[in-house]
């Protein structure tokens, strides 16, 4: 398979008044064409910051990429000129945001915003772009697209708005889509529909998809592979089904056990003890050690490298064998 995106040893830090927050500390992952990679993690684990660094929309200052390379279709994005980089965005890679209501401009009609993609990147006339906008809305199954193309974002329901967001991202048939918690702001009934639509369009166009989420339910259905992030590092990567069967990192295990289960109804819900570490002051050794039930002395001193668990799996835990074992 051809590698579409390859992130190597990415470091991002935010220089704030309170100190330097190390949001991403050596992330490695790759996405193949047509593949879905789910990036899983709590808030503040660095999953969105990694995505912003890939897209090149990191707020800088205060955000700085201090180390690493991002190869996209063979070219290092970080060495591209600003203008060349801008032309990649939207056309070759696009992003879907969490909250479509705030990610759509309230003073422009959705038709204008969809059409803008063609005006900016393809130099189309407004009239042609409008016609394409209607096609796009049809494609993401918005009823009466022709009548509604002139409507404003607040006139659509949450699910419809997210469809429009997806349509915008898909407009130029990019090779890579990053969806940052695309269903978090939607209610459950609509979540499944939107995920289905996304997966279907992805299959059709053979795009790479990075799905950023903290919802393990969403992941199981659509992802091929999972990367679990904690405190700015990837702690485990594995094909989706293997990770559900037998996690090789205590953090992943904790996440999976935190899902409410019907057969354990009435019992206390499991939660990982403690809080995610402050990114300004990441604990020495394994960042997860203060919360880890398996932590030993070595975890407090040595940062675990990504151990190869199998051909397709890796875990950043000194005791991955024990974790996998029980």
């Amino acid at each position: 398979m051809d590698t579409l995106l390859d992130v190597r040893d990415l470091h991002v830090e935010f220089r704030t008044r309170d100190g330097v927050a190390k949001a991403v500390n050596g992330v490695n992952y790759s996405v193949n064409a047509g593949e879905t990679l789910a990036v899983l993690g709590e808030s503040g684990s660095g999953k969105s910051v990694t995505a912003q660094a890939i897209m090149g929309i990191l707020d800088s200052p205060p955000g700085h990429i201090t180390q690493g390379k991002i190869f996209f279709q063979g070219a290092d994005l970080l060495s591209l000129h600003r203008e060349a980089r801008r032309q990649v965005r939207g056309a070759k890679m696009a992003m879907i945001f969490q909250d479509a209501l705030s990610a759509l401009n309230p003073v422009l009609s959705v038709g204008d915003q969809l059409g803008e993609m063609y005006v900016v990147h393809r130099g189309m006339s407004r009239k042609d772009a409008r016609a394409r906008a209607v096609e796009l809305m049809d494609r993401v199954r918005i009823p009466a697209a022709k009548e509604r193309v002139g409507d404003y974002p607040h006139q659509f329901s949450g699910g419809m708005r997210q469809r429009i967001m997806i349509a915008m991202a898909m407009a130029l048939e990019p090779d890579l889509i990053i969806a940052d918690e695309p269903t978090t702001a939607l209610d459950v009934t609509v979540q499944a529909q939107v995920m289905e639509l996304l997966a279907e369009l992805q299959r059709e166009m053979r795009m790479g998809l990075i799905l950023i989420t903290h919802d393990l339910g969403v992941v199981a259905d659509v992802a091929d592979r999972i990367a679990v992030m904690y405190a700015g590092r990837i702690v485990e990567t594995a094909p989706v089904h293997e990770i559900y069967k037998a996690p090789a990192h205590p953090y992943t295990k904790g996440l999976l056990e935190s899902i409410p289960r019907l057969d354990l109804k009435g019992k206390e819900l499991y939660a990982i003890k403690g809080l995610p570490p402050s990114l300004i002051n990441i604990p020495p050794g394994c960042a997860f050690n203060p919360r880890c039930p398996m932590a030993q002395e070595v975890c407090r001193t040595d940062v675990p490298p990504l151990y190869k668990v199998s051909q397709t799996r890796a875990s950043a835990c000194h005791f991955w064998k024990e974790c996998l074992g029980d």
Partner: peptide, 16 residues
């Protein structure tokens, strides 16, 4: 606002 970030993510330049 998110939509400014979104416009940037979809390739809009600073003037636009």
């Amino acid at each position: 606002n998110d939509y400014v970030q979104a416009a940037r993510a979809l390739g809009a330049g600073p003037i636009r």
